[in-house]
């Protein structure tokens, strides 16, 4: 293990400062009692990691780290903390597993020591520059782009599907629970125009068509609309 000061002085200073920022931020995430403080300490760690990315010639990832992690994910955390009002301190009166904390700390130290022992001089013998050399004169962004859109194109496409699923899942999970909607649970049709429902019974249309229009026209999004069209559906069905 070469000494840190074997590097040039600016590199060594940058690494030591960024590493200190990372470790202090990580400890702050774990040790802070208030979740808001934990989130802000997480920002500190993320910035430190971004500095280390720049130091390791990964400029694009450093920018993405700051934009996505510090700019979006932590803000999302803070939004949830503030909205739910869970920023009170943790209470430790009732601990169902009293031995968990010391065992966790001991296991963590054990794992760290093991990794550090393994890290001394044992390197994986991977082949060099399989999918593109970093040291080529092209810029970092073009190298990553070429790698993503040629070698890892399938993974990129699957990632887009993953993001779509995540958006749908978040909407479904965070929606308010819907109240007592009888019989309209399995209707997945598009939103019907309100004029069709509110215009009264239309004699020119047969009854089955009217039922399918009302039945399939209930929106799944908001409970208010569902309740409204549900009662309308009852009226339509039971009226004639």
């Amino acid at each position: 293990m070469t000494h840190v000061l074997a590097a040039t002085i600016p590199d060594a200073i940058t690494f030591v400062m960024a590493a200190a920022i990372c470790v202090v931020g990580a400890l702050g995430v774990v040790l802070a009692r208030n979740p808001v403080h934990s989130a802000l300490m997480l920002v500190m760690t993320l910035f430190g990691v971004a500095v280390l990315f720049v130091e390791e010639d990964a400029q694009f990832l450093a920018a993405v780290q700051v934009i996505v992690y510090a700019g979006a994910i932590v803000v999302l955390f803070l939004f949830v903390i503030m909205l739910l009002g869970v920023d009170q301190k943790e209470v430790f009166q009732r601990d169902p597993l009293p031995a968990q904390r010391p065992v966790a700390i001991a296991l963590g130290i054990l794992g760290l020591v093991e990794v550090l022992v393994l890290a001394r001089g044992r390197w994986p013998s991977g082949a060099r520059s399989v999918s593109g050399a970093i040291g080529s004169p092209a810029s970092n962004v073009s190298l990553i782009g070429r790698s993503i859109f040629t070698t890892y194109l399938l993974a990129f496409e699957v990632t887009s599907a993953l993001l779509a699923v995540a958006v749908v899942g978040a909407v479904v999970l965070a929606r308010r629970p819907r109240h007592s909607v009888g019989g309209n649970e399995d209707s997945t049709g598009p939103v019907a125009e309100p004029d069709d429902d509110l215009g009264g019974p239309d004699d020119t249309e047969p009854e089955g068509v009217e039922e399918t229009i009302v039945g399939s026209g209930t929106p799944r999004g908001e409970s208010g609309d569902i309740k409204t069209s549900g009662s309308l559906a009852d009226v339509e069905v039971t009226g004639p």
Binding site: E56, D57, A58, F60, L61, V64, Q65, V68, Y69, A72, I73, L76, F77, V80, W123, G126, A127, R128, S129, V130, S131, G132, A133, I134, G135, N140, L143, I144, S147, I148, T151, Y152, A155, T159, L162, L163, V165, A166, V167, G169, A170, V172, L173, A174
Partner: peptide, 29 residues
């Protein structure tokens, strides 16, 4: 990625970022 002079490591980080974003969205939901 720097040690083996291979850009694939940075590409993997890109995908980890995307998966982390999706995970945070669903988890917070």
């Amino acid at each position: 990625a720097r040690r083996l002079n291979d850009i694939a490591g940075q590409t993997a980080v890109f995908f980890v970022l995307v998966v982390a974003a999706a995970e945070v969205v669903v988890g917070l939901g």
